[in-house]
Design a protein around this nucleic acid. Structure first.
Lengths: 325, 325
DNA sequence: AAAACTTCTGGGAGCGCTCCCAGAATCCGC
DNA sequence: GCGGATTCTGGGAGCGCTCCCAGAAGTTTT
């Protein structure tokens, strides 16, 4: 490993001072074209890369943001939703010389690291219940944006999909198909995404029986056991709104095992448009990559201290009709 | 944002010198119990967190490793395989005060950042063809471990699943079931994982016709179009070994659309044991979390400069028989 | 009891940048 | 043409740590 050149070697080669090299590197004003070119050439010739550590130390900036997955189990990592968000985050980050540091938070352990100035801001997703992480970070002055509305409320801006409307649309579609006994497999009740999709279902179901509710945890297994419960409670049910495609996968397996044909016997609508299934799922699409980009854009703006930002953003969803309903 | 306490404030409060505080923080020897306790108390009282930037700068250590996803498309992020690996990586990292920096590499852009001393080592996964990234990093003296055997060979240690044997087992299972016309949907030919699984199929098929091969790119869509091709080439085929569950999902959709029952008309075996499907897939299981842990352990050992390490590791696979074959 | 270690401790020189300040060069208006 | 504003440039003081060195304190050996 050959020693890396430092900024003064670049300065020497370019025939200018460290200060000028620094200015060029950071795109600061007040640099003559001649100096700029000389520095650029020297940088290339030496294959110079600035040392991030020194930069952070001197510049009081970490040049990194954290993506905090507030879920000990790591369940969310396996979720296609998360993968899409991450792609979006990454897309928005390119060109910003900002690194992405991934953290999985076991409640209580991550706070001091984050507020310790190691990152310039944090994206927190998959937040459960009244996790104090968000307010902890916010109170410490760290720019934070939540992915998904935080149940606890509070001053932290968030980006979310319009889960309520999406769920309502999905359920209305089921109703328009003539389904009579419409059940739902809802998400966890300690997350807004679970609650909101359930509310959407309830809203669309007003005037009908709304007792066919079972809960899953956004895993295929959870969807499967919820489906089993529902089938026991009402063997005659003829439709299910499943609050996540990933749970629908499990539900479909159970339905199949119980000899129900989809959509003939039981119509199924999912949410997310994230997985291919047999039969292809009618589902509510959300643009997860856009979600990730929005999240990141919002955080970077927060870090820059931009004014007049929307406190929070709600992204639209759309129903995609395929064969499962 | 209140100013963070520095190491000298801790030193003052504990009544010792900066040097001693530093020793305690880094678990260095030659510190009296009295001094150690005093420092520990001061750290807690001040809620002190060391500044990583300063630490890296002074210590010539970044305290971070990179997980490089060598795939511009970001396809791999949506793969459950990747999610599992990441969980493993994270699990192995806890307790190592080492951060995980995620990078997606567009060929050529990542090298200089990585060799620039911003990370202590790199995990490179989803490597295609003869991507020079690996040798670039290695030649620059950066500890690297590849996830999946690099096609280009070379001196870089890797961790891989025993794809060859797994594929062979899967195919032999199909043969033992009495299938006569066994096709395969193989992975990309510019990745060892694609090649090795294909070789396993070929090996098991020796003595039979091996022309029923179509290629996919480890996406459901790729699996679907490969299945369509195969069905056109031989409408009578009665079994398929699909080199990834995620592709099997697409293949299943196509089989269903073409009126083929699984497993009655066409038996299907997948690889990865990563997705629930209808019908439940017979597949080759690999322990992806273990894969990630192994990868990380190997890299950390490499960074520590441990001697006598196995150059590479091959993890076993096992056939899980369910209903699709 | 002195010599020779060993354990512990503090001082202080960097690590490679950024950014403030002050000075040099260049520009402008009247 | 000359003062004043403006653009450019270099010097150098940190940023908050680690780690080397040398000295103090304590232990063992001869």
């Amino acid at each position: 490993m050959t020693r890396r050149p430092g900024i003064d070697e670049v300065a020497r080669l370019a025939g200018v001072s460290k200060s000028t090299v620094s200015r060029v590197l950071n795109g600061a004003p007040h640099v003559s074209a001649r100096a700029r070119d000389a520095v650029r050439r020297a940088v290339i010739q030496l294959d110079y890369t600035p040392n991030q550590a020194a930069r952070s130390l001197a510049g009081h900036r970490a040049n990194a943001i954290a993506l905090v997955v507030s879920e000990p189990s790591g369940r969310v990592l396996a979720d296609p939703f998360f993968a899409g968000v991450m792609r979006g985050v990454h897309a928005e980050l390119t060109g910003h010389r900002t690194q992405l540091v991934l953290m999985m938070s076991q409640p209580g352990d991550v706070g001091s690291y984050l507020t310790g100035g190691h990152v310039d801001g944090a994206l927190v997703i998959s937040l459960h219940g009244h996790d104090p992480l968000l307010s902890l970070l916010h109170d410490n002055g760290l720019p934070v944006v939540a992915g998904g509305r935080p149940l606890a409320g509070g001053p932290v801006p968030y980006v979310d999909s319009d889960n309520f409307t999406g769920a309502m649309d999905a359920t209305e579609h089921l109703i328009s198909l003539g389904s009579k006994r419409i059940a739902t497999i809802a998400g966890p009740t300690d997350m807004a995404v679970g609650l909101d999709r359930l509310s959407g279902w309830r809203r669309a179901m007003s005037g009908r029986r709304t007792d066919l509710v079972a809960y899953g945890d956004f895993t295929p297994e959870g969807g499967a056991s919820a489906m089993t419960t529902l089938l026991t409670r009402d063997p005659e049910l003829d439709a299910v709104f499943v609050a996540a495609d990933i749970m629908a996968l499990g539900a479909l397996q159970v339905l199949h095992a119980h000899g129900r044909r989809v959509p003939d016997d039981v119509a199924v609508v999912g949410f997310d448009d994230s997985v291919p299934a047999v039969p292809p799922l009618t589902t509510v699409r959300q643009d997860v990559e856009r979600f990730g980009r929005m999240l990141t854009w919002r955080l970077l703006a927060e870090i820059e201290g931009d004014e007049g930002l929307p406190p929070s953003v709600l992204l639209p969803t759309s129903l995609v009709v395929r064969t499962s309903a």
